[in-house]
Amino acid sequence: MLRGPLGAEDGVPVSLVKVLPDASASGGAQMALDDGLLQTVDQVMARRYAWAPPALSLGKFQAVELKPGLPFDVVRRPSGGRAVLHGEGFEWSFAVAFPPRALGAGRRAGADVALPYELVAGAFAGALRDLGVTLDDARGTPYQRSALCFASVLRHDLMSRGEKLVAVAQARREGRVLVHGSVLERRPPDELVAAVETLLGEPWEGDGLEATGVVVDADRLWRGVLLRLEAGLRLLKEAS
């Protein structure tokens, strides 16, 4: 599904964002990479990745009693939030990591949880709209709780026709910020959905981008996100 890394050589004129190669790997390896970014990133970095084999990622402190025989790996994210099912063919993931002071050096910047979300979710919103997806206004939507991330709704979530399209979570450590997330392209295979429902005791919700009726090419979406992220960082830099 992921056709290869996008970067300057692919017509994406990014300079503030270091675009890492796309990677398809196990959930354990993917979370180790994201955790490594959170611990060491020294310039803004972005990467896109696929999960093979499929995996269920849990929020850092999410309590789930695991059962044997699950048809997917289970891994824990360095970020918070609820469970997300990942796997090639129905979903892809991304991470954007910011070093200290990349989001401004002001007193409030270090504690500003909203800004990294706005940059990354805003980049996705703009890129999705460019590709013809009409987004719902989720800002007035009250927080909806579920053990499943794609069935939970937050202010920054990107929704279309009531479907959550992109799940975003954030972790902060010693001034570094990791924003990572998942793009749900379509409903996962029934076997995986059934296992998730049994494990968490909650009904699956989410058909992702497919439910919007718009065909969204993953490469074009990611390219649009990178361009908008670059533009957002430039605006921040000019303002500081």
Partner: peptide, 14 residues
Amino acid sequence: APYGELESVKAVSD
């Protein structure tokens, strides 16, 4: 130095 973490609906923070 960080002594713990707080998870909010937005982030996990030291």
